[in-house]
Design a protein around this nucleic acid. Structure first.
Lengths: 342, 342
DNA sequence: CTGAAAGCGCTAACAA
DNA sequence: TTGTTAGCGCTTTCAG
């Protein structure tokens, strides 16, 4: 037999079924307008030729590709995984797919990857935070591409933002500790040079409660980073009675490290986080933290993007509520300080 | 001025620049073959008309969409997030993008979403495990679509598999405990009815070490689930001296719960996991577990898929090494059992 | 109910 | 160096 040239197309199917291409197209898009018998014949031809519709050809006619892109710093952090989970689920309900790309918190990589997403036909973009290159804005503005920013909130920003108030989150944590009487607090945070959310949280602290001394520790944003911070805290600052972590992963690391050193939490040192990861409430002791509604943020972002893409409605910026979750890891300053028993 | 009808296309740009469409196309794809002056004129026209190339039109000519799809049970589990992180990074180096879809471990949802990914033009697919519907296989076989399965290994499977030996992983954990003298072990695992990897691990245990009694606890695959299991373990089984968790998240939950009950690990109860999450080695006590190379698996999957998509080379199945990581959470059976001090 | 034919936006021969 | 033109695979009028 003759070798099958390439993939079968509409014309091939039409020929095999002895109908016109229009009829084949109808069998796909409006089967009820095709006579039973003809339809059967066409369907059989499709089977036999193993025909599959070409997404590109469809897209070229409809002008739609049915997918949007999300640019996140990393997938290896629970926060973004949960945002994307919410985003994917909700986009699916709008019959949209999700393309993900990671930026390592580098605006230049972000711009490149955004270009890539646009090249393959993304109908809209979601980015994290408010640090973006002019090239990035150039891209989306040229294409008048729907794009929203998450994890932050500013109604005056160039992109519609959907997120929470990072300043308020950090201050809520500080207030909680200060109100309990802590006067010397170690602040543990991730890299601030490339992340505006972290920076916002750090800046929110300075001078907010003048009566307390703040000592900053910058570490990698990971459990391991938290452990490192934990060590630094217990060796360096004898009078420190509480640790404020700008992220729950860090808080977990600090906690494990303090436990390893035999320091009681919250007996000797109080510990508070920001994020409220799914595991935080199950830690021992249960972690006091500031809840950030990341799943809801994903959903909201999906609805906003989908609406924009489908009906050209530019979404309103949206501020999501945060909430202080007081649990077991904080209490009044202990008598003993960060000195291990040893 | 007249309202701009739709988006500008090549013809519009050509007209504005007073050249032919071919020249405009060349400015995009082979600028060096166009005279400096002409090129400038064309580029200006592009700017003015805010022209953007249509991904669909390109795809229809090249026959390529430059993206592949990944179907994972969920994004809210560290394992998949890390796999996808590796996958995305490596795909990017092949200039391929990644579309993600979640299945909730339901093969029917998987088939639907696979259809959706194919509809929008995915050039290849990555799925998790070996439980798939006939519809799914129908889809990929009709389209002769490159598709690989991860998190499992079986050279005879219908799809090329890239993963580790789940049976060996579970047995390595059991052996470690049994070798230390544990004779009654609680096995904690996630839902088994819909997850073949979990099932493989459970089945690997039965009769593997006849001298030990195994008591099974099925809980949701989360920290909270681990906590629930922890409670069950300490109330139900007085003679239990060790807990084997088929997943590190579960082990973390069990650990926190045991700590909450004042039970020493590994003093009174030993604890072992499977996965080796980034945080596991930093827990207190450091968790003994079986390392699963999920990042590498993501990379390998990316290379396999990219190769298949680009050069029609069907990849070889690939078995990745696992490794028992003996850390601080296991030891010989303690004298006291799961009864809290209270 | 079915078919002919005109595009959709772009690329790639082939000519000039 | 540039233009002409024929497609790519499909949808969609508009006529039968």
């Amino acid at each position: 037999m003759k070798a099958q040239r390439k993939r079968a197309n509409l014309r091939d199917v039409a020929a095999a079924a002895q109908v016109s291409v229009a009829t084949v197209s109808r069998v796909m898009n409006a089967p009820e307008t095709v006579a039973e018998k003809t339809r059967a014949r066409v369907e059989q031809a499709m089977q036999e030729l193993r025909w599959l519709p070409s997404a590109a050809a469809r897209a070229i006619n409809s002008g739609r590709t049915r997918f949007v892109g999300a640019l996140v710093p990393t997938l290896e952090h629970d926060i973004f995984a949960r945002v994307l989970a919410g985003l994917e689920r909700q986009l699916a309900s709008h019959r949209l797919s999700l393309v993900v790309a990671t930026t390592d918190d580098d605006p230049r990589i972000e711009a490149e990857k955004a270009q890539g997403l646009i090249d393959i036909g993304a109908e809209g973009l979601m980015v994290s935070g408010m640090t973006h290159t002019p090239e990035f804005f150039g891209l989306i503005e040229r294409g008048q591409l729907p794009a929203i920013a998450i994890s932050c909130f500013d109604p005056d920003y160039r992109l519609p933002t959907i997120g929470y108030d990072n300043t308020a989150a950090a201050r809520a944590a500080l207030d909680h500790l200060a109100d309990q009487g802590h006067r010397r607090i170690a602040v543990v945070h991730g890299p601030s040079n490339l992340n505006d959310r972290t920076r916002a949280r750090i800046e929110a602290l300075a001078g907010h409660r003048p009566e307390v001394d703040l000592v900053y520790h910058e570490v990698p944003l990971s459990i391991a980073g938290g452990c490192a911070a934990g060590q630094a805290v217990r060796t360096a600052a004898a009078r420190t009675s509480a640790v404020l972590c700008l992220s729950d992963v860090l808080a977990s690391g600090v906690l494990f490290e303090l436990q390893r050193a035999g320091i009681a939490v919250p007996g000797q040192i109080s510990l508070i986080g920001v994020d409220d990861l799914p595991g935080s409430e199950h830690l021992y002791p249960e972690l006091t933290t500031v809840h950030l509604p990341v799943s809801r943020m994903g959903l909201a972002a999906a609805d906003a993007l989908a609406g924009w893409v489908e009906t050209q409605t530019v979404p309103q910026p949206r501020l999501l509520e945060i909430e202080l979750m007081v649990r077991a890891s904080t209490g009044p300053p202990g008598r003993l300080n960060g000195q291990p028993a040893a």
